[in-house]
Simulated assay, not measured.
Amino acid sequence: MARTDGDSWDLASSVGATATMVAAQRALGHRDGLIDDRFAEPLVRAVGADFFIRMLDGEIDLAAIDPAFTMRRAAEGMAVRTRWFDRMFLDAAAAGVRQAVILASGLDSRGYRLPWPDGTVVYEVDQPEVIEFKTTSLATLGAEPTATHRTIAIDLREDWPKALRDNGFDPSQPTAWSAEGLLIYLPADAQDRLFDEITALSAPGSRLATEHVPDLSAVTDDRTKQLTDRMREIGSDIEMAELVYQGDRSDVVEYLTAKGWNVTAAGAREAHESNGFDFPDDGLMAAFADMSYLSATYG
C-alpha cells in the first residue's frame, strides 16, 4: 500500500518491515563476525515475520532472488552501514559528547550494545508501538542499557523536538545524531524540516551521521520490480516502490553545509573498500553505487 499522510505501521508492515529487514541483515553480519549486534537476531525472531525468520534459518536463498545478492553480500553491505554509524557515535563520545539521539530507531540496539562513557544519555525516537515492542522484547532478553536510556514514543511528523526537551534533552550541550536509513521514507519537505530541527537543537561540536541517495529511480525501475516480484513469490510483502517518496529533494551535503555543518562523505564503493569488501558491480546494489554515507560536525 502506498504511503499516505498520517499512515502508521508496526515492525511487520510497511516502513516498519524495512527496519526488521535491516535487523535481519545485521544478524547475518553478527553471525559472520563483521559487527557486534547480538540483539539483532532475537529481535527479528520476536517480531515474528515469517519471511525474515525463514531467511535466518537458511530456508530462503537470497541468491534465488538476485544471483549477486548472496547472504554474505547482505551481511557485508549492512556491516559497512552499521560500522559507519557506530563510528560516529564512538568518535563523538571520545570527543566528550554525552548526549545521543537515534531517530527512527526501529530495532537499533546501540543503546544496549555500544560502550557509552559514564554520564551519556541516549534518546531513541520512534512510533509508540515500535518503541514499546523493542523495549519490552529487550527486557525479556535480560538486556540492560549501557547508558542512561530514554525512549521518546512519538512519530517524527509530530513535535518530537518538544518531546525530547520534555524528557531532559539539553540543546545547549553537543549531541550525536543518527538518521540512518530514514531519508528516503520522508517527503522532500520533511527531509529539509528534519535537518532544520536537528540544527536548531544542536550546540557547537554536535555530530550527525546519515546517508544521501541522489537518485531514487532505481527503487522503481524494471529491475527492482522484477526483484520485488521474486521476493513476493517466496513470502516477502515489502514493496519498496510504494514506501519511498520520489521527486526532487535537496542535496543533503549542500543542505547541511548551508546550515553550518562540516560534512564528510564516503561513496558506497569507497566505504565498502575501506572496510575490506568488494563493492558489487552487478545486481541491485549496483543501482545504489551513487549513494553516500555522511558524517558531519556542527559549528
Rank of each mutant, 00 (worst) to 15 (best):
K134H: 08
K134I: 05
T135M: 08
T135G: 14
T135W: 06
T136H: 12
T136Y: 12
S137M: 09
S137P: 10
S137K: 10
S137C: 07
S137A: 15
A139K: 12
A139T: 10
A139W: 05
A139G: 10
T140C: 12
T140I: 08
G142I: 00
G142A: 00
G142C: 01
G142T: 03
A143L: 09
E144C: 11
E144L: 12
P145E: 12
P145W: 13
T146N: 12
T146R: 13
A147N: 10
A147T: 07
A147Y: 12
A147E: 13
T148A: 15
T148C: 09
H149Y: 14
H149R: 15
H149L: 14
T151P: 15
T151E: 13
T151Y: 11
I152E: 01
I152Q: 00
I152R: 02
I152L: 05
I152F: 06
I154C: 02
I154N: 02
I154A: 03
D155S: 08
D155T: 03
D155A: 10
L156Q: 04
L156G: 03
R157E: 09
R157D: 04
E158R: 10
D159Y: 07
W160Q: 00
P161K: 01
P161T: 00
P161R: 00
P161E: 00
P161L: 02
K162F: 13
K162S: 14
K162T: 10
A163G: 00
L164D: 03
L164K: 00
R165T: 15
R165N: 12
R165D: 12
D166M: 06
D166R: 02
N167A: 14
N167Q: 09
G168F: 10
G168R: 06
G168S: 05
G168V: 15
F169L: 13
P171G: 15
S172D: 14
S172E: 14
S172M: 14
S172K: 09
Q173G: 12
Q173T: 15
Q173W: 09
Q173F: 09
T175C: 08
T175S: 05
T175I: 03
A176L: 04
A176I: 04
W177G: 02
W177S: 00
W177M: 01
W177T: 02
S178K: 11
S178L: 15
A179M: 10
A179N: 06
A179P: 11
E180L: 11
E180R: 14
E180G: 15
E180I: 15
E180P: 09
E180T: 13
G181E: 07
G181D: 04
G181S: 05
L182M: 01
L182Q: 03
L182P: 05
L182N: 02
L182F: 04
L183Y: 02
L183E: 05
L183D: 07
L183T: 08
I184W: 06
I184C: 09
I184V: 13
I184G: 05
Y185Q: 07
Y185S: 02
Y185P: 05
